[in-house]
C-alpha cells in the first residue's frame, strides 16, 4: 500500500471501525453500570444525595495535604499529563474539526505552537511516570502487562502527532496516516481497558458522594 492509500484507509474505514467500537463499547459499559441499580435506602435521608455527589466530583479532584505530601510526584505528574492530554486533544484546530464533523459543535483553538509545547510537556510527564512506575517497588509490583500497554497506547498518538506536526521521519501522507491510526488503536482500547475511566470516573465519584451525602456525611 502507498502512503496515500494508508491515509485514505485511516481516514475512512479504519476510523469508522474505531468509532463504532469506542461508542458501542462505552455505551454498553455505562448502561450495564447504571442498570446495576442501588438498593432502596429505607432510612430517613439526613442530607442530599445530589449535593453530596456533585461536591465529591470536585473534592476528590483536589488532593488533601496528607496525600499530596506522600505522593507529590504521582499527583503533580498525573495532573500535568491529564491537563496536557486535554489541551492537545481538544484545543488543537485540526482536532476540533474532527469533533465538529462528529457532533456539529465547534470551539476556539489555542495557537498551534502552544499546543505543541503542551504535547512535549505531556510526553515528558508520561515518560516520567513510566520511569517512576518501574523504579518504585510497590508500583512495579502492582503493575501488570495491561498497564504498560495502556501507557504505550496513550503515549503513541502524542509522539506520532508531534512527528506529524514537525514532519519527522516519513512522508506527509504517511505521517498523518500513522498519527490517525495510533489514535484509532487508542479508541479501540478504551472500552476494554482501564482507560474507560475517562467515561466512568465522574459517575463513580458522584456515586461515592451520593452514598455519603444521603447519610449527611461530607466526603
Amino acid at each position: 500500500m502507498t502512503a496515500t492509500e494508508w491515509l485514505l484507509w485511516a481516514r475512512g474505514p479504519a476510523f469508522e471501525i474505531a468509532t463504532v467500537i469506542l461508542v458501542m463499547g462505552i455505551i454498553v459499559r455505562l448502561i450495564e453500570i447504571l442498570m446495576l441499580g442501588r438498593k432502596e435506602n429505607l432510612a430517613a435521608p439526613k442530607g442530599s444525595a445530589t449535593t453530596g455527589g456533585l461536591r465529591t466530583i470536585v473534592s476528590r479532584s483536589v488532593p488533601d495535604s496528607g496525600t499530596f505530601q506522600r505522593s507529590t510526584f504521582t499527583i503533580v505528574a498525573g495532573y500535568i499529563f491529564h491537563i496536557g492530554l486535554f489541551v492537545v486533544i481538544f484545543l488543537l484546530a485540526p482536532h476540533i474539526l474532527v469533533f465538529s464533523k462528529l457532533t456539529g459543535l465547534s470551539w476556539p483553538a489555542l495557537p498551534t505552537t502552544i499546543v505543541d509545547a503542551f504535547a512535549v510537556i505531556t510526553i515528558l510527564a508520561l515518560i516520567a511516570v513510566l520511569i517512576n512506575r518501574l523504579n518504585n517497588k510497590v508500583k512495579r509490583y502492582l503493575s501488570g502487562p495491561m498497564d504498560y500497554i495502556v501507557w504505550a497506547l496513550t503515549t503513541l498518538p502524542l509522539i506520532t502527532g508531534y512527528m506529524a506536526f514537525h514532519r519527522i521521519g516519513f512522508s506527509g501522507p504517511m505521517l498523518i496516516a500513522l498519527h490517525i491510526m495510533s489514535v484509532e488503536l487508542l479508541m479501540i482500547a478504551i472500552p476494554f481497558t482501564k482507560l474507560s475511566h475517562a467515561f466512568t470516573l465522574f459517575l463513580a465519584r458522584f456515586y461515592n458522594g451520593a452514598v455519603t451525602g444521603i447519610k449527611g456525611v461530607q466526603s
Binding site: E16, P94, H95, L102, I176
Partner: peptide, 12 residues
C-alpha cells in the same frame, strides 16, 4: 485533512 472521509456522525 484531519477529518474522516466518511459520514462519521451518522455512524456514531
Amino acid at each position: 485533512l484531519s477529518t474522516p472521509t466518511t459520514d462519521i456522525a451518522r455512524t456514531a
